[in-house]
Simulated scan of single mutants.
Amino acid sequence: MGGERVVFNNLEIKPGKRVEVKGYIPEDCKDFSVNLGKDENNLILHANARFDFRNDKRVLACNSLKDCEWGEEVIMDIFPFQLGTEISLSLTFDTEKVNMIFSTGEEISFPVRFELDMINYVALRGLIFRCLTSE
């Protein structure tokens, strides 16, 4: 699979702040993920775009991970991704949900399932990473 894994630690992104991710989806990508949380064992958002992964084709699955235990996976009703294209994803974190706005203009929310006062950890896997910004 093309793409890479990029991890950012000690970010201190507080509620109300936005994180923007830009990258390229390789032609041979089976899936990619964007993770936000406290650390790799505590994620308020694991967004996994599956082009052709296991039994899923063109599925955006979201979940949370608390103390190494996965919550219930939620399959979103959109899939705004194309192989071989640039993407941008804007994520706004608040105490109750993470709002995601895609470069296509589509928007979804995923509930924050456990208390977190700031995002310290962002990990990207499967994309050719271009840029990460927060404001």
Score class of each variant (00 low, 15 high):
residue 28 D to H: 09
residue 122 V to K: 07
residue 114 F to G: 06
residue 117 D to C: 13
residue 120 N to G: 11
residue 103 S to A: 13
residue 104 T to W: 09
residue 24 Y to Q: 11
residue 104 T to M: 10
residue 121 Y to W: 11
residue 32 F to P: 04
residue 36 L to W: 08
residue 91 L to V: 02
residue 80 P to V: 12
residue 27 E to W: 05
residue 128 I to G: 05
residue 63 N to C: 00
residue 32 F to M: 06
residue 51 F to M: 04
residue 64 S to E: 02
residue 123 A to D: 06
residue 108 I to T: 11
residue 15 P to F: 04
residue 59 V to F: 00
residue 51 F to E: 01
residue 70 W to A: 10
residue 76 M to Y: 05
residue 54 R to M: 13
residue 26 P to E: 08
residue 9 N to Y: 13
residue 62 C to P: 00
residue 32 F to G: 00
residue 16 G to D: 12
residue 20 E to W: 00
residue 102 F to Y: 14
residue 8 F to S: 09
residue 73 E to G: 05
residue 116 L to P: 12
residue 103 S to L: 11
residue 87 I to S: 00
residue 107 E to S: 15
residue 71 G to W: 03
residue 79 F to S: 01
residue 38 K to E: 13
residue 74 V to Q: 13
residue 107 E to V: 07
residue 122 V to F: 06
residue 83 L to A: 06
residue 10 N to Y: 15
residue 81 F to G: 06
residue 11 L to I: 04
residue 50 R to N: 08
residue 52 D to N: 15
residue 70 W to M: 09
residue 111 P to D: 00
residue 62 C to H: 01
residue 3 G to M: 06
residue 4 E to R: 10
residue 88 S to M: 12
residue 87 I to E: 02
residue 85 T to H: 01
residue 46 H to I: 00
residue 59 V to Q: 09
residue 26 P to F: 05
residue 111 P to W: 05
residue 63 N to Q: 03
residue 128 I to A: 11
residue 90 S to P: 00
residue 130 R to D: 15
residue 93 F to Q: 08
residue 45 L to C: 08
residue 3 G to E: 01
residue 61 A to Q: 12
residue 16 G to Q: 14
residue 135 E to S: 14
residue 25 I to D: 00
residue 3 G to H: 02
residue 84 G to P: 00
residue 71 G to K: 08
residue 10 N to Q: 12
residue 92 T to I: 14
residue 121 Y to C: 01
residue 106 E to L: 06
residue 128 I to S: 13
residue 55 N to V: 14
residue 19 V to W: 05
residue 93 F to Y: 15
residue 53 F to Q: 09
residue 7 V to K: 11
residue 19 V to P: 00
residue 73 E to T: 10
residue 110 F to I: 01
residue 96 E to F: 13
residue 21 V to C: 06
residue 118 M to T: 07
residue 16 G to I: 11
residue 128 I to P: 01
residue 77 D to Q: 11
residue 48 N to V: 08
residue 1 M to R: 07
residue 38 K to I: 09
residue 125 R to F: 01
residue 1 M to A: 10
residue 119 I to W: 07
residue 109 S to Y: 04
residue 21 V to S: 05
residue 65 L to V: 03
residue 37 G to T: 02
residue 9 N to I: 04
residue 132 L to G: 03
residue 6 V to A: 03
residue 50 R to Y: 07
residue 63 N to S: 02
residue 100 M to S: 05
residue 3 G to W: 05
residue 8 F to E: 08
residue 15 P to G: 10
residue 98 V to R: 08
residue 84 G to Y: 01
residue 90 S to T: 10
residue 120 N to F: 09
residue 69 E to D: 14
residue 29 C to I: 02
residue 127 L to I: 11
residue 53 F to V: 07
residue 133 T to I: 13
residue 7 V to I: 15
residue 29 C to S: 14
residue 97 K to H: 10
residue 78 I to P: 08
residue 28 D to V: 02
residue 128 I to R: 12
